[in-house]
Amino acid sequence: MRTRTQRLALALICAGALFPGAATYAPGTAGGASAGKPATHSVVIDGLKYDPETLTVKRGETVIWTNKDPFPHTVTAQGKFDSHDIAAGGSWKYVARTAGEYSYICTLHPNMKGMLRVE
């Protein structure tokens, strides 16, 4: 039998797990080491541009692309990662696990180019 305090602590831990990176979910946030949890970075897709166009993250960190255009886009690094269609207003989350430089495009509008650097 768990005590009431233990159960409360457990509930709080679970609540934290439901909202990972909530404290660090801001554009261009770097690091996140203070929380002991990998940071979450944001890239906004607006007017057929990835903003920021180049993003550098550390291994294990998360990147969320949010599409603010009125039609779908993709985030595609051939053979590495592919969001497939991100609907208007939708978003796509990617955990960067492997170090490297990944240039990516939108396969629907290949004039859109971005770069993800994983250190």
Partner: peptide
Amino acid sequence: ITKVRPAFVA
């Protein structure tokens, strides 16, 4: 119009 112009280019 400015925002969607690049879509027409694509």
